[in-house]
């Protein structure tokens, strides 16, 4: 009972935070996605023709949604948790009887909700540019939620180690962005030479984008079972690592 109240407190505080600053949190992904659709979907897309049997704008839609979900869940947790460290308001939680896993869970759920809200908004934008039909609703939902969970936890770990505001933008810029762009958002890996295809298979984001594409369009470069299994495994590992770091007080208790 008391844990439920505490969890609810963190989650509602997190949701309130990103809703309050929607200009920085919810609007940018909408604008960026709209630009992608205008440029790649409407202007360049027709010259590209079809990919995996779909209009180019239809093909990129799942990837663009996933891109928004990934960056937004990650940055929600990393900036919110790092700010709490910076303002020292994290001490409010550290002195309380809340167990560590609850703090982690609360922030993760906050990040997942941000990812989902943005995902839905981006899909709504996509509807303006392309027709949308979701082939496998449940797979789509599962993939999105799992991916958002994974990157929320990732943001949490990043925030634990971060010592300045610069440290919270390094991973999104130099790791997440390249992996996402190379994760098959804009192309099918079948277009690549065998060598680069193999390399691409080591990119975890590829599995998420393709899993999601399978859910929406019904096509994928990767087996859907493999994709889901892999993401679940990564979520579990990330949760374990984050919890161990948190319990040891890494980056939060001197």
């Amino acid at each position: 009972m008391s844990n439920r109240v505490a969890l609810f407190t963190i989650v509602s505080r997190e949701v309130l935070r990103f809703m309050r600053i929607w200009l920085q949190t919810l609007l940018p992904p909408v604008v960026v996605t709209a630009l992608y659709f205008i440029i790649f979907g409407n202007l360049i897309g027709p010259r590209i023709g079809s990919m995996d049997g779909f209009d180019y704008s239809q093909f990129i839609m799942p990837g663009l949604v996933m891109m928004a979900v990934i960056t937004n869940s990650y940055s929600n947790v990393v900036s919110s948790f790092y700010s709490a460290k910076f303002h020292r308001s994290i001490e409010e939680m550290l002195i309380s009887p809340m167990p560590g896993y609850l703090i982690l869970l609360g922030y993760t759920l906050g990040g997942v909700l941000r990812g989902l809200v943005v995902g839905v908004l981006v899909m709504a934008v996509a509807l303006l540019f392309t027709e949308l039909r979701v082939e496998h609703v449940w797979i789509t939902v599962i993939i999105v939620v799992l991916t958002a969970t994974l990157f929320s936890i990732g943001g949490f770990i990043n925030a634990l180690f971060a010592k300045s505001f610069d440290d919270i933008s390094i991973v999104p810029t130099f790791v997440l962005a390249p992996l996402t762009y190379l994760g098959g958002v804009f192309y099918s890996i079948d277009m690549l030479s065998p060598f680069w295809r193999q390399i691409s298979l080591a990119n975890p984001i590829l599995y998420m984008v393709n899993g999601f594409r399978y859910g929406v369009l019904g096509v994928s470069d990767i087996g859907i079972g493999v994709a889901i299994g892999l993401i679940v495994a990564m979520v579990l590992i990330a949760f374990g690592v984050a919890l161990a770091l948190l319990e040891r007080g890494v980056g939060i208790r001197s």
Partner: peptide, 28 residues
């Protein structure tokens, strides 16, 4: 605990700071 240095989020409303703290302690 009343710490030596301010340790709340200065952008949060006063009431919410106290309410959230109650929440962390599991007070409905």
């Amino acid at each position: 605990l009343v710490p030596q240095e301010f340790n709340f989020n200065i952008f949060e409303p006063v009431e919410e700071i106290v309410l959230n703290q109650a929440g962390y302690y599991g007070i409905p």
